[in-house]
Design a protein around this nucleic acid. Structure first.
Length: 241
DNA sequence: CGGGTTTGACCTGCGC
DNA sequence: GCGCAGGTCAAACCCG
């Protein structure tokens, strides 16, 4: 067991479950996920940056705990779900942080503007120095043509495995070496019929330990059997490196 | 044999 | 129009 894994287990031991919950929450995997996805102003990119900090740190400092609390806040806000007490306490974050969301945050739509901001961090001098997929300018043009695109969500995860088990079954349909990167980008599609959700997986050039996952679209089905399988103990270990 | 992966070719959009 | 780069296709291949 890695140091990171021990760290996670020492801080509640429920991180996988919560991470899975997080992913499901973000991507519309939950059956009651609102049709109009909303995110508070914290934004996906910053949220998962906080998550990454938590995952990557050998021990949870007050700062990362606070960040994680914000992240949790964000994610619960997205679905207006009741926050999990165990998660809040495990991260050392005051529970009231999770409950202090105002309605405007919940109702604040996470539109293309924020997606663009997230994806164009390189162009805008973002600290991560990588651009996930389409540039802001490109998307602007597409938007101008009213070309409808599925919502996208991106996040970083420190992992040895490229493809994180999110409860769904994916089929790889392409791989491409992106310019100025050492690692190829892989393209996946959901294998479910009538489900057009796609995801891209690549590793961060600056830190190959970090996996960048970008989801596009929303599942029109539940994880069902796949999710049950993914929650088997053996696969939990795989997921948590 | 069916399902998944690999990989070169092809398509599309954008900048010049 | 051309070249470049990202994204997708699909035939070949692999594996259980």
């Amino acid at each position: 067991m890695s140091t990171t894994t021990r760290s996670i287990l020492n801080h509640g031991g429920n991180l996988f479950e919560d991470q899975q919950y997080v992913m499901h929450t973000q991507l519309g995997f939950l059956p009651n996920f609102p049709a109009n996805l909303t995110f508070p102003s914290l934004g996906c990119h910053q949220s998962l940056k906080g998550f990454q900090n938590t995952m990557g740190s050998p021990s949870l400092s007050s700062e990362t705990a606070s960040t994680t609390a914000n992240l949790t806040e964000t994610l619960f806000a997205a679905t207006a779900q009741k926050p999990r007490q165990d998660l809040a306490s495990s991260f050392g974050g005051p529970t009231h942080h999770l409950l202090s969301l105002n309605a405007s945050s919940v109702l604040n739509p996470w539109g293309w503007g924020e997606v663009s901001e997230c994806l164009s961090s390189k162009r805008n001098g973002g600290e991560n120095g990588h651009c996930l997929g389409m540039s802001a300018m490109k998307m602007k043009k597409i938007k101008g043509r009213r070309k409808v695109r599925e919502p996208r969500f991106c996040f970083k995860t420190m992992s040895d495995v490229d493809v994180l088990d999110d409860g769904y079954k994916w089929r790889k349909y392409g791989q491409k070496v992106v310019k100025n990167t050492q690692h190829p980008r892989s393209y996946y599609r959901c294998t479910q019929d009538n489900c057009r959700v796609k995801k891209r997986v690549e590793r961060l050039a600056e830190d190959p330990r970090m996996v960048i996952t970008t989801y596009e679209g929303r599942h029109a089905h539940s994880p069902s059997n796949d999710l049950e399988d993914s929650q088997a103990p053996s696969q939990l270990t795989d997921f948590l490196w």
